[in-house]
Protein backbone atom coordinates (compact mmCIF):
# COMPACT_ATOMS: atom_id res chain seq x y z
CA UNK A 1 0.00 0.00 0.00
CA UNK A 2 1.29 3.44 -0.91
CA UNK A 3 2.16 5.60 2.05
CA UNK A 4 -0.40 8.21 3.03
CA UNK A 5 -0.04 11.59 4.66
CA UNK A 6 -2.02 12.04 7.87
CA UNK A 7 -2.68 15.06 10.03
CA UNK A 8 -3.81 14.02 13.50
CA UNK A 9 -4.58 16.58 16.17
CA UNK A 10 -4.01 15.89 19.85
CA UNK A 11 -1.12 13.42 19.48
CA UNK A 12 0.67 13.92 22.77
CA UNK A 13 -1.29 11.25 24.63
CA UNK A 14 -4.27 8.90 24.56
CA UNK A 15 -5.97 7.86 21.38
CA UNK A 16 -4.23 10.47 19.22
CA UNK A 17 -0.80 9.25 20.22
CA UNK A 18 -1.74 5.60 19.71
CA UNK A 19 -3.20 6.35 16.29
CA UNK A 20 -0.16 8.36 15.22
CA UNK A 21 2.21 5.58 16.29
CA UNK A 22 0.05 2.98 14.58
CA UNK A 23 0.03 4.80 11.22
CA UNK A 24 3.75 5.58 11.49
CA UNK A 25 4.46 1.89 12.08
CA UNK A 26 2.48 1.13 8.93
CA UNK A 27 4.87 3.34 6.95
CA UNK A 28 2.68 6.42 6.63
CA UNK A 29 3.70 10.04 7.31
CA UNK A 30 2.03 11.76 10.23
CA UNK A 31 1.92 15.41 11.21
CA UNK A 32 0.55 15.88 14.68
CA UNK A 33 0.00 18.64 17.16
CA UNK A 34 -0.64 19.22 20.80
CA UNK A 35 -0.29 22.03 23.30
CA UNK A 36 2.86 20.43 24.63
CA UNK A 37 6.04 18.97 23.28
CA UNK A 38 5.89 15.76 21.30
CA UNK A 39 6.05 12.39 22.95
CA UNK A 40 6.57 10.64 19.61
CA UNK A 41 9.97 10.14 18.03
CA UNK A 42 9.91 8.91 14.47
CA UNK A 43 11.56 10.01 11.24
CA UNK A 44 8.21 10.36 9.48
CA UNK A 45 6.57 12.33 12.27
CA UNK A 46 6.26 16.11 12.28
CA UNK A 47 5.13 17.77 15.48
CA UNK A 48 3.60 21.20 16.01
CA UNK A 49 3.18 22.66 19.44
CA UNK A 50 -0.03 24.66 19.24
CA UNK A 51 -3.58 25.18 20.37
CA UNK A 52 -5.97 23.91 17.66
CA UNK A 53 -8.13 26.99 18.23
CA UNK A 54 -5.24 29.37 17.42
CA UNK A 55 -6.05 30.38 13.86
CA UNK A 56 -2.68 31.68 12.74
CA UNK A 57 -0.83 28.72 14.30
CA UNK A 58 -3.13 26.28 12.50
CA UNK A 59 -2.70 28.11 9.18
CA UNK A 60 1.09 27.98 9.57
CA UNK A 61 1.04 24.33 10.54
CA UNK A 62 -1.03 23.23 7.55
CA UNK A 63 1.09 25.24 5.10
CA UNK A 64 4.24 23.74 6.61
CA UNK A 65 2.80 20.22 6.32
CA UNK A 66 1.87 20.92 2.71
CA UNK A 67 5.41 22.05 2.01
CA UNK A 68 6.95 18.97 3.62
CA UNK A 69 4.47 16.26 2.63
CA UNK A 70 3.27 17.77 -0.66
CA UNK A 71 -0.32 16.71 -0.02
CA UNK A 72 -2.59 15.66 2.83
CA UNK A 73 -4.71 12.53 2.41
CA UNK A 74 -6.35 12.16 5.79
CA UNK A 75 -7.25 14.51 8.63
CA UNK A 76 -8.26 13.13 12.01
CA UNK A 77 -9.75 15.88 14.16
CA UNK A 78 -8.86 13.97 17.27
CA UNK A 79 -8.02 16.74 19.76
CA UNK A 80 -10.75 17.02 22.33
CA UNK A 81 -11.62 18.08 25.84
CA UNK A 82 -14.15 16.13 27.88
CA UNK A 83 -16.06 17.91 30.59
CA UNK A 84 -18.49 16.54 33.07
CA UNK A 85 -20.28 18.99 35.25
CA UNK A 86 -23.81 20.08 36.07
CA UNK A 87 -24.58 23.13 33.97
CA UNK A 88 -25.42 25.13 37.09
CA UNK A 89 -21.90 24.67 38.36
CA UNK A 90 -20.07 24.98 35.07
CA UNK A 91 -17.76 28.01 34.79
CA UNK A 92 -18.22 30.00 31.58
CA UNK A 93 -14.50 29.84 30.86
CA UNK A 94 -14.78 26.07 30.89
CA UNK A 95 -17.54 26.18 28.27
CA UNK A 96 -15.37 28.37 26.07
CA UNK A 97 -12.42 26.00 26.41
CA UNK A 98 -14.51 22.97 25.51
CA UNK A 99 -15.97 24.67 22.45
CA UNK A 100 -12.57 26.07 21.45
CA UNK A 101 -10.90 22.71 21.24
CA UNK A 102 -13.81 20.49 20.24
CA UNK A 103 -15.57 22.68 17.74
CA UNK A 104 -13.42 25.69 16.77
CA UNK A 105 -10.37 23.46 16.42
CA UNK A 106 -12.27 21.04 14.21
CA UNK A 107 -13.49 23.95 12.11
CA UNK A 108 -10.05 25.51 11.66
CA UNK A 109 -8.28 22.28 10.76
CA UNK A 110 -11.06 21.31 8.38
CA UNK A 111 -10.97 24.68 6.65
CA UNK A 112 -7.22 24.80 6.22
CA UNK A 113 -6.65 21.14 5.36
CA UNK A 114 -9.51 21.18 2.85
CA UNK A 115 -7.71 23.94 0.96
CA UNK A 116 -4.82 21.51 0.50
CA UNK A 117 -6.97 18.44 -0.20
CA UNK A 118 -9.09 20.18 -2.83
CA UNK A 119 -6.01 20.60 -5.03
CA UNK A 120 -5.84 16.81 -5.33
CA UNK A 121 -9.62 16.49 -5.52
CA UNK A 122 -9.37 13.87 -2.83
CA UNK A 123 -9.27 13.59 0.93
CA UNK A 124 -10.91 12.07 3.94
CA UNK A 125 -11.69 13.91 7.15
CA UNK A 126 -12.79 12.11 10.28
CA UNK A 127 -14.31 14.12 13.10
CA UNK A 128 -14.95 12.92 16.62
CA UNK A 129 -18.29 13.01 18.33
CA UNK A 130 -19.47 11.02 21.34
CA UNK A 131 -22.31 8.75 22.40
CA UNK A 132 -23.17 11.52 24.87
CA UNK A 133 -24.92 13.29 21.97
CA UNK A 134 -27.51 10.62 21.03
CA UNK A 135 -27.86 9.56 24.69
CA UNK A 136 -28.35 13.17 25.89
CA UNK A 137 -26.30 12.36 28.96
CA UNK A 138 -27.08 14.45 32.02
CA UNK A 139 -23.91 16.04 33.34
CA UNK A 140 -22.44 16.43 29.89
CA UNK A 141 -24.51 19.33 28.57
CA UNK A 142 -21.54 21.39 27.44
CA UNK A 143 -19.42 18.52 26.14
CA UNK A 144 -22.34 16.98 24.26
CA UNK A 145 -23.38 20.38 22.86
CA UNK A 146 -19.87 20.95 21.50
CA UNK A 147 -19.95 17.53 19.87
CA UNK A 148 -23.48 18.07 18.54
CA UNK A 149 -21.99 21.08 16.80
CA UNK A 150 -19.30 18.80 15.38
CA UNK A 151 -21.99 16.42 14.10
CA UNK A 152 -23.84 19.19 12.29
CA UNK A 153 -20.57 20.50 10.95
CA UNK A 154 -19.67 17.00 9.73
CA UNK A 155 -22.87 16.61 7.72
CA UNK A 156 -22.82 20.09 6.23
CA UNK A 157 -19.11 20.15 5.47
CA UNK A 158 -19.59 16.79 3.72
CA UNK A 159 -22.07 18.59 1.45
CA UNK A 160 -19.90 21.65 0.91
CA UNK A 161 -16.67 19.74 0.34
CA UNK A 162 -18.13 16.85 -1.62
CA UNK A 163 -17.63 18.57 -4.95
CA UNK A 164 -13.91 18.81 -4.21
CA UNK A 165 -13.64 15.07 -3.66
CA UNK A 166 -13.34 15.46 0.10
CA UNK A 167 -15.34 13.10 2.30
CA UNK A 168 -16.23 14.01 5.89
CA UNK A 169 -17.49 11.52 8.45
CA UNK A 170 -17.51 11.20 12.22
CA UNK A 171 -16.93 8.46 14.73
CA UNK A 172 -18.78 8.49 18.05
CA UNK A 173 -16.83 6.47 20.59
CA UNK A 174 -18.14 5.21 23.90
CA UNK A 175 -15.80 5.92 26.79
CA UNK A 176 -12.32 4.61 26.10
CA UNK A 177 -9.94 4.47 29.04
CA UNK A 178 -7.86 7.53 28.24
CA UNK A 179 -7.10 10.79 29.98
CA UNK A 180 -10.35 12.11 28.62
CA UNK A 181 -12.47 10.08 31.04
CA UNK A 182 -9.99 9.87 33.89
CA UNK A 183 -11.92 12.37 35.99
CA UNK A 184 -15.38 10.93 35.45
CA UNK A 185 -16.76 9.06 38.50
CA UNK A 186 -16.95 5.27 38.11
CA UNK A 187 -20.69 5.04 38.81
CA UNK A 188 -21.35 7.54 36.01
CA UNK A 189 -19.30 5.48 33.59
CA UNK A 190 -21.13 2.29 34.65
CA UNK A 191 -24.49 3.98 34.06
CA UNK A 192 -23.32 4.95 30.61
CA UNK A 193 -22.19 1.44 29.74
CA UNK A 194 -25.68 0.21 30.73
CA UNK A 195 -27.18 2.34 27.97
CA UNK A 196 -25.08 0.73 25.27
CA UNK A 197 -26.25 -2.45 23.54
CA UNK A 198 -22.78 -3.87 24.09
CA UNK A 199 -21.88 -3.15 27.72
CA UNK A 200 -18.14 -2.65 27.68
CA UNK A 201 -15.61 0.11 27.43
CA UNK A 202 -14.40 0.93 23.98
CA UNK A 203 -10.84 0.22 23.02
CA UNK A 204 -8.51 2.11 20.75
CA UNK A 205 -8.89 -0.65 18.17
CA UNK A 206 -12.68 -0.13 18.07
CA UNK A 207 -12.24 3.54 17.22
CA UNK A 208 -9.42 2.87 14.76
CA UNK A 209 -11.55 0.28 12.98
CA UNK A 210 -14.20 2.90 12.19
CA UNK A 211 -11.58 5.48 11.24
CA UNK A 212 -9.90 3.03 8.86
CA UNK A 213 -13.28 2.09 7.42
CA UNK A 214 -14.03 5.76 6.63
CA UNK A 215 -10.59 6.33 5.17
CA UNK A 216 -10.13 3.30 2.99
CA UNK A 217 -10.39 3.63 -0.75
CA UNK A 218 -13.37 1.28 -0.94
CA UNK A 219 -15.35 3.74 1.23
CA UNK A 220 -15.27 6.42 -1.46
CA UNK A 221 -19.08 6.30 -1.59
CA UNK A 222 -19.44 7.14 2.10
CA UNK A 223 -19.62 10.71 3.39
CA UNK A 224 -21.60 12.76 5.89
CA UNK A 225 -22.08 9.72 8.13
CA UNK A 226 -21.79 9.30 11.87
CA UNK A 227 -21.05 5.89 13.37
CA UNK A 228 -21.48 5.36 17.11
CA UNK A 229 -19.77 2.52 18.87
CA UNK A 230 -21.28 0.10 21.37
CA UNK A 231 -24.62 -0.13 19.56
CA UNK A 232 -25.70 3.34 20.60
CA UNK A 233 -28.37 4.78 18.31
CA UNK A 234 -29.76 8.21 17.74
Amino acid sequence: MASLNYIITGTRKGLGKELAEYYLAKGHNVAGCSRGKTSITHDNYLHFELDVADESAVVKMVRQVKKQFGRVDILLNNAGIAAMNHLLTTPYGNVKNVFSTNFFGTFLLTREVSKVMMKNKKGSIVNYTTVAVPLDLAGEAVYAASKAAVESFTRISAKELGEFGIRVNAVGPTPVYTDLVRNIPKNKLDELLEQQIIHRFGETGDVRNVIDFFNKEASNFITGQIIYLGGVMK
Binding site: E55, S56, V59, K60, R63, K115, M118
Partner: peptide, 17 residues
Protein backbone atom coordinates in the same frame (compact mmCIF):
# COMPACT_ATOMS: atom_id res chain seq x y z
CA UNK B 1 -9.22 32.57 -1.56
CA UNK B 2 -7.51 29.17 -1.59
CA UNK B 3 -5.38 29.77 -4.67
CA UNK B 4 -4.38 33.28 -3.67
CA UNK B 5 -3.41 32.33 -0.11
CA UNK B 6 -1.22 29.55 -1.49
CA UNK B 7 0.37 31.81 -4.12
CA UNK B 8 1.12 34.52 -1.55
CA UNK B 9 2.60 31.94 0.78
CA UNK B 10 4.84 30.61 -2.00
CA UNK B 11 5.98 34.06 -3.13
CA UNK B 12 6.47 35.91 0.15
CA UNK B 13 6.67 33.06 2.66
CA UNK B 14 3.93 34.65 4.75
CA UNK B 15 0.71 32.93 5.78
CA UNK B 16 -2.30 35.18 5.38
CA UNK B 17 -5.95 34.28 5.82
Amino acid sequence: VTDLEAAISDEFDVDIT
